[in-house]
């Protein structure tokens, strides 16, 4: 196509070319909208419009079938006063620890230690392997983890005996149990699955980030007599500002909107100990048909994500400006 265009070009003087280009560029800036329209239509119809409707529904009492009744802000009041709903929000706060802070911190530590190892041939294979959780359906991972965390599951098989033995040394000891059925360990169990999903992503991202740091920075600090620990805090950490910000952002969104894993592994039990907003929204809207209340919780969730992410973005951007 380009060729036909080339052959049909008209001879023009240099000045008129520039002038022509400027008007053409302006025409482009207007005509370009035609290229934007399909994406905007799809996005508007299936994201923005539903989002506006979520807000609208949240002010109504509606069972999804019969006429809705305007109730003002009372659904939002419910979200923060109903113990089950509120605890779901609290649980997602705890999940942030597992999905977000732990993988980022662990990823940093692992990246620091494995930087040299991951450069080798082993590293190429390892990278492919530890990125795998990003590729598999979370539902299937949830099924696998339900067994791993079961009474006779692999996690107990590997870790129970040594941990119990250690605890017995100090006069304690812990009964073997199914993680996801335990009041104490069900939420950490779900969190462990979150670590599994996120750790590889964060580790690889941070390793790549570390590779970009100018080696001369390290050399300079070594001349100053800095040890590896001070190096880590003085050079590595500040240089990774952006990567850390990305890790935290991506993992926090995953923590707050967790659904697949909880749906498959615990259904929110035992006794709502692992109930999260995503699952609660689904149950309220489609099982209990409290569409208004579910929508209010959905909007609270959306706002919560924004509240969590804005400070991180601010932190990252501040770094970029300085």
């Amino acid at each position: 196509m380009l060729n036909t265009a080339t052959t049909s070009r008209r001879p023009l003087g240099a000045g008129s070319i520039l002038r022509g280009l400027r008007t053409l560029a302006r025409a482009d800036r207007a005509r370009g909208w035609l290229f934007l329209v399909p994406a905007l239509v799809a996005y508007g119809m299936f994201v923005l419009w539903p989002l506006a409707n979520s807000i609208k529904y949240s002010f109504y009492n509606w069972d999804g079938i019969n006429p809705a009744k305007w109730v003002g802000l009372s659904n939002y009041g419910q979200v923060f006063t109903n113990a089950t709903l509120y605890s779901a929000i609290e649980h997602s706060g705890i999940l942030i620890l597992f999905f977000s802070f732990l993988p980022t911190a662990l990823g940093l530590a692992l990246a620091a230690f494995m930087r040299s190892a991951i450069a080798g041939r082993l590293g190429t294979v390892a990278r492919v392997v530890i990125f795998l959780p990003q590729v598999v359906a979370l539902v299937a991972a949830g099924i696998a983890w339900s067994w791993l965390l079961g009474y006779d599951g692999a996690i107990n098989q590997i870790f129970y005996a040594p941990v119990d033995a250690l605890l017995k040394l100090v006069g304690l000891g812990v009964a073997q149990q199914a993680w996801l059925g335990s009041f104490k360990y069900a939420l950490p169990g779900v969190g462990l699955i979150g670590i599994w999903v996120m750790l590889g992503f964060c580790t690889v991202l941070l390793t790549v980030g570390m590779g970009k740091i100018d080696p001369s920075l390290y050399e300079a600090s070594q001349l100053d007599g800095a040890g590896p620990v001070r190096e880590f805090f003085d050079i590595t950490l500040p240089s990774l500002r952006q990567e850390i910000g990305v890790c935290l952002t991506v993992t926090m969104i995953a923590a707050l909107s967790a659904f697949d894993i909880v749906y498959i592994s615990t259904q929110g039990g035992p006794a709502n100990q692992t109930m999260v907003p995503g699952l609660e929204i689904y149950l309220l809207a489609f099982t209990n048909r409290q569409v208004g209340l579910a929508s209010a919780l959905a909007i609270v969730l959306v706002v919560l994500v924004v509240i969590c992410i804005v400070p991180i973005q601010w932190y990252v951007n501040r770094g970029n400006e300085s």
Binding site: N61, D63, V71, S74, Q78, Y263, Q267, G268, L279, L283, L284, T287, N288, R289, Q290, L293
Partner: peptide
Amino acid sequence: EPRFQSRAQREASIVD
């Protein structure tokens, strides 16, 4: 408390 349709029919809900 508003007379919601109750968190009902959740009965057995998510489970097989």
